[in-house]
Structures are given as C-alpha cells and as structure tokens.
Amino acid sequence: MTRSVWKGPFVDGYLLNKAEAGRASGRNEIIKIWSRRSTILPQFVGLTFGVYNGHKFLPVQVNENMVGHKFGEFSPTRTFTGHSGDKKAKRG
C-alpha cells in the first residue's frame, strides 16, 4: 500500500538543514547523510550526497529523475560492483 498523499513525502529534518547549508555554501561539498529512508525532494537536485550504506558514504549526485525515490536506493549495501564492459562516464 502506498503512502497517503496528505502526509507528504518523508524526509528527516536534519537532512533538510544540511541540504540548505550545502546549497548556500555553493562550494564543492559532499553532504554526508545516514538517512537512507528519506525521499529525494526537488530542492536536492544538483547536490551531491554521501549516503551511508553501513560501511561507507557512497557519493550520489542527485538529478531530476531521482526525485521521489529514496536515498537508500542509490547506495547498495552489498558488495557486487558490476561489470564495466563498454560503459562510459560523463563528468557531472
């Protein structure tokens, strides 16, 4: 069952403060968070978070497509790293 719309998305309070401070600084910063359960909000787009996976803070660059998902979805807790194959990276 999905979450009721009237409740709004869940976000831990401390995370909002950190995101605001990160955006205000305008510098090259990583916002370390433990809250994997928090929903990604539109105001987080463009920020880089370090999402804790129980071991490390994995960098997550938030873009528009991630809005509505939870932070934990982008920070796997198991060690499988995948295969590079012919995959390419573009600097964000």
Binding site: L58, P59, Q61, E73, G92
Partner: peptide
Amino acid sequence: VHDHGGGVYLEIGTLLLPFTK
C-alpha cells in the same frame, strides 16, 4: 569505478569521489 544509479564515482583506496567536474 562504480555507478549504482546515483552517478559515477571513483574509488581511490578508501576514498570515494564523485566523478564531477
């Protein structure tokens, strides 16, 4: 070099760095 859907990041020893400009 990893990508779990949250953008590519580099692993340098214990350091993890987002692959951004």
